[in-house]
C-alpha cells in the first residue's frame, strides 16, 4: 500500500513539473505596443553583503507614460523593491535617490513625506514585479484617447560607486548619492515620443540624462560626463507598434 501511495505521489509531482514547462508569452493584437528592454553588460551588479560576499543584483527601474506636455499619466511597470519598499540590507535608507524622476513625475506623497511607496501602501497604479534577470517586455493596449505619448524609463543600481560619485561623499556635496547604502552613479533616464497615428512603427528610447544623485529633486541633468558603468545597464529600449 505504501509502495502504491509513494508511486502515486511521485508521479503526481513529476506531472506537475512537466506541466510547469508550458510556455506563457505575451500575445499582441493590431495597435498594441511592445516595450522591450534588452539588458546591457552591467545589468547585473555586485551588491556587497558582508565579509566580502556579494549579491548579484539586477537594477531597479520604472517604465511609465506621460503626455506630450510632460504630465504623468501612469506607471506601466516598477520593480518590486521600489514599488513595495522591499529593500534588503538598506539599513533604513528609503532609497529616495533610486528613481527620483519617476517619483517626482508620479507626485504621490506618503506618510513619511517621501514620494516612495511603502510596505503598507505599495504601488497600485501599474504593475510591479521582481526585477527580471535579463531584460523585460511589456504589452500596452492603448485606448483611443491619445494620439501621441511619451514613454520613459528610469534605471538605477544601488552602491554603483565610481570616482565621480564615491561612497564617501558627504551630504552637503553635489555628488552625494545616499551614503554607503546609496546609489553611487545616479539613475539614468531614457525617453521617446511615440506617435500612435499610422506611420512610424518602431522607436528607440534615447538616454536623455540622469536624475538627482541624492534624490532631492525630480529634474533631468543632461551632463553625463561622470557616468561610467551605469551607461551599460541597459543595451536598448525598443518600442514597436504592432
Amino acid at each position: 500500500m505504501k509502495k502504491i501511495t509513494l508511486s502515486i505521489a511521485m508521479a503526481a509531482m513529476l506531472m506537475l513539473n512537466l506541466c510547469s514547462c508550458e510556455k506563457d508569452e505575451l500575445l499582441f493584437n493590431t495597435d498594441d505596443i511592445s516595450v522591450k528592454i534588452t539588458e546591457g553588460e552591467n545589468w547585473i551588479h555586485d551588491f556587497p553583503l558582508f565579509l566580502g560576499i556579494n549579491l548579484k543584483n539586477p537594477p531597479q527601474f520604472a517604465i511609465w507614460i506621460e503626455d506630450t506636455d510632460g504630465n504623468y499619466i501612469s506607471t506601466l511597470f516598477a520593480t518590486k523593491k521600489i514599488a513595495t519598499e522591499g529593500w534588503v540590507s538598506n539599513k533604513g535608507n528609503r532609497r529616495k535617490e533610486a528613481l527620483p524622476h519617476w517619483c517626482y513625475q508620479r507626485g504621490i506623497f506618503y506618510d513619511d513625506g517621501l514620494l516612495l511607496p511603502t510596505k503598507e501602501e505599495p504601488l497600485t497604479d501599474g504593475i510591479s514585479g521582481a526585477t527580471p534577470i535579463a531584460g523585460i517586455e511589456l504589452k500596452i493596449s492603448p485606448e483611443n484617447i491619445l494620439d501621441q505619448l511619451v514613454i520613459k524609463v528610469e534605471v538605477n543600481h544601488s552602491t554603483d560607486f565610481n570616482k565621480t560619485y564615491p561612497k564617501n561623499a558627504k551630504p552637503e556635496d553635489s555628488n552625494y548619492s545616499g551614503g554607503e547604502e546609496g546609489s553611487g552613479q545616479p539613475a539614468l533616464i531614457y525617453s521617446s515620443l511615440i506617435d500612435l497615428s499610422p506611420g512610424q512603427s518602431e522607436y528607440q528610447l534615447d538616454l536623455i540624462g540622469h536624475s538627482s544623485p541624492d534624490g532631492t529633486d525630480g529634474d533631468i541633468y543632461q551632463d553625463l560626463s561622470g557616468i561610467t558603468s551605469a551607461i551599460k545597464i541597459i543595451n536598448t529600449i525598443i518600442v514597436k507598434i504592432k
Binding site: 513539473n17 510547469s20 514547462c21 510556455k23 506563457d24 508569452e25 505575451l26 507614460i65 499619466i73 501612469s74 506601466l76 511597470f77 497604479d125 501599474g126 504593475i127 514585479g129 521582481a130 527580471p132 534577470i133 523585460i136 517586455e137 511589456l138 504589452k139 500596452i140 493596449s141 492603448p142 485606448e143 484617447i145 491619445l146
Partner: peptide
C-alpha cells in the same frame, strides 16, 4: 530545476498593460 511564468496586468482609462514574468 523549477521555473514558473506568471501574468500580470493593469488597466486604467488610458488603456492597459500586461507583463509575463518568470520565477526561477
Amino acid at each position: 530545476y523549477g521555473k514558473k511564468t506568471y501574468r500580470k496586468s493593469y488597466s486604467a482609462d488610458w488603456g492597459s498593460v500586461e507583463y509575463v514574468g518568470t520565477f526561477e
